[in-house]
Design a binder for these strands. Sequence first.
DNA 1: ACCTCCCGCCATTCG
DNA 2: CGAATGGCGGGAGGT
Length: 392
Amino acid sequence: MASLHDSDTKVPSLYSRKEKSLGVLCSNFLRLYNREGVESIGLDNAANQLGVERRRIYDIVNILESVGVLTRKAKNQYTWRGFRAIPQALEELRASSNDNLKMSQYYNFGTVLNENNCRGPSNSNNSNTDTHIKPSGSHKSDTNRKEKSLGLLTQNFIKLFISSKEDLISLDTAATALLGDVHDPTAMRTKVRRLYDIANVFSSMGLLEKMRHPESGKPSFRWLGLKGEKETKSLQPLDTNTITNSSKRRAFGTDITNNVNDSDSKRYRMESLSDWSSKEVTVAMHGNMNMNMNIDIVKVEMESDENLCLPLHPQNQRNSKEFVFGPFRPVGMSGNKKSKEGQDWEKLAHTYRPQYHNKALGDVLGHYVEAWKSWYVEATEKKHVQQQQQVQ
DNA sequence: ACCTCCCGCCATTCG
DNA sequence: CGAATGGCGGGAGGT
């Protein structure tokens, strides 16, 4: 039936596409698992907790795995590595990157990047399937499925950034480069779609930043993560105070170097963090999912933030703040213990703290760190449940 | 009208 | 063989 829900005051269709983006999903995912004590992740659990279809979990997980945040343990099971695993993953990417990056810039990555460049752990595969991504006319059989995997695409996408001189890369450019010699418009569009997916989750993680290219004005992305180079410089090369407390919060995906014109204040998607600060979001649903869990309205309420950088948290406010969007009720919403620890993020924040040569980036980084703090604090004092019921 | 990119069908691969 | 994975692109929401 699903007739009108009446409910006077509001319009039935509260559907918002943005709330369902991979970016927010990723943020929620991170919020759920990026905490201490987590070491195993069950896909079913994740899907339930986050209120999304399994399919979406695969997307997130595959992308995260490609930067080392997760590793597949077994069917349905992943091992949490955390952000601290990112630097090494990037280092490996860089290594393999300039390894086969001998000829030129990113334009022939299509010829350079291909499968067998995954991670060390899983080196068990035989090494057949030589290295020519381009189906050499005859059989485009089998193995080429893996070549098209999201995970690999993600890694190659990253390689573009860390090995290219270009700082800003548009998805079109990236897609073209990643496609190699294939010049099929359909393939192109598909590739771009995937890149959008990846870019969104990376943006939510603070690894990428979306912005317009100075001249062309084309939407492009800038890599904020490490360049892969293990340059272990000290932390604050330049303006430290910039990130100390800018007190003016800005969401990640937002345009920063808008020195050009903010008259229009064109702002990009600022899901990720800003979403968490949304006071109260009610998501109704045109229930009809093929999953039979109790569907109902999930209310999302966070306290009124005002700023993302709350160092410590008044944990007096137990529960009452939920973070799961979507039609499904998070299953494991039972008792939640309020453990208070969390100044551990400080350590982590220092561990993984990329440095940039660019002032603007430094600023973003500041937000990143601040944001991270709040994630951590938030996640930490939230329910610790999930851990207990992972394995089925 | 073009840019984004969610959604879920259905091919593959796994156990 | 059924379940777990995950390519792929139609087409709708967002500027």
